[in-house]
Computed example of a mutant assay.
Amino acid sequence: MNVFPDFDGLGGIGDLREVIGALLTFVLIIAVLMLIVCAVIWAIASSNGNQVAATKARVGAWTAVGAAVLAGGGVAWMNWLISLGDQL
């Protein structure tokens, strides 16, 4: 039995895919920029002894890494689920 979602069942699904792809690209670019800024602030604050700013920058850096992992991993997970459904 071949179980696979009907992606053509909804009108405008191609436009929705383009919008989601653009949003995913936007999220990944912002996450990388946020990671760079937070890492620089973390380094400067740590070297100057400002532990409050260093802690906030560290939290921001880990948040950026988490956002990038979730955004990138979501696509891989969805593709894995689709291929798993195809094997049922």
Rank of each mutant, 00 (worst) to 15 (best):
G60K: 01
W80H: 12
V52H: 07
L84S: 15
A76C: 01
A53F: 05
I30Y: 01
M34P: 00
R17L: 15
V75I: 12
A64V: 02
V32K: 07
L88F: 10
A71Y: 04
S46I: 00
G11V: 12
G9C: 09
A54C: 04
S46C: 01
M34I: 00
L81E: 08
L84F: 14
G85K: 08
V27N: 03
G73Q: 12
F26Y: 08
G21M: 05
L35Y: 13
I29E: 14
F7G: 12
L10Q: 07
E18Y: 06
V65L: 12
F4N: 09
A71V: 02
A67L: 14
I30D: 05
C38E: 05
A22M: 10
G12T: 02
A68R: 02
L28V: 12
N2Y: 08
F7D: 03
A39W: 01
S46V: 00
V37C: 00
M78F: 15
V59D: 04
G74D: 06
L10S: 02
Q87T: 13
W80G: 06
G60Q: 05
I20D: 02
A31Y: 01
W77V: 09
F26M: 09
G12S: 08
V69E: 02
A54M: 11
V3G: 00
V52G: 02
G49K: 11
A61S: 14
I41H: 04
N2R: 13
G12R: 09
G21F: 05
L88K: 07
L23G: 04
L88G: 12
V19Y: 02
I20Y: 09
G66A: 10
G85M: 15
L70G: 05
G73L: 11
V32F: 13
L81A: 12
V52D: 12
L24V: 03
V32C: 03
V75Y: 12
M34W: 04
P5A: 07
G12A: 10
G73Y: 10
V69C: 08
S47L: 11
A67I: 15
A71T: 12
T63V: 13
G14N: 14
M1L: 07
T63Y: 01
V52Y: 10
G66F: 02
P5K: 03
A76R: 01
P5S: 06
V32G: 04
A61R: 03
A39F: 04
S83N: 14
P5I: 04
A43C: 07
V37N: 05
M1R: 06
G66Y: 01
V69L: 15
D15Y: 06
I29Q: 14
I82Y: 08
L23T: 00
L81C: 07
A76M: 11
R17Q: 15
G60Y: 03
N48H: 09
I44K: 13
A54G: 10
S46F: 06
V3N: 14
A45N: 03
A53R: 01
L84T: 11
S46H: 06
A61Q: 01
A54H: 02
G60H: 02
D8P: 00
S47N: 14
W62N: 04
M34S: 10
R17H: 09
I82W: 03
V75T: 10
A45P: 07
L84K: 15
D6F: 05
F26K: 10
N2T: 11
P5C: 09
E18H: 04
I41N: 02
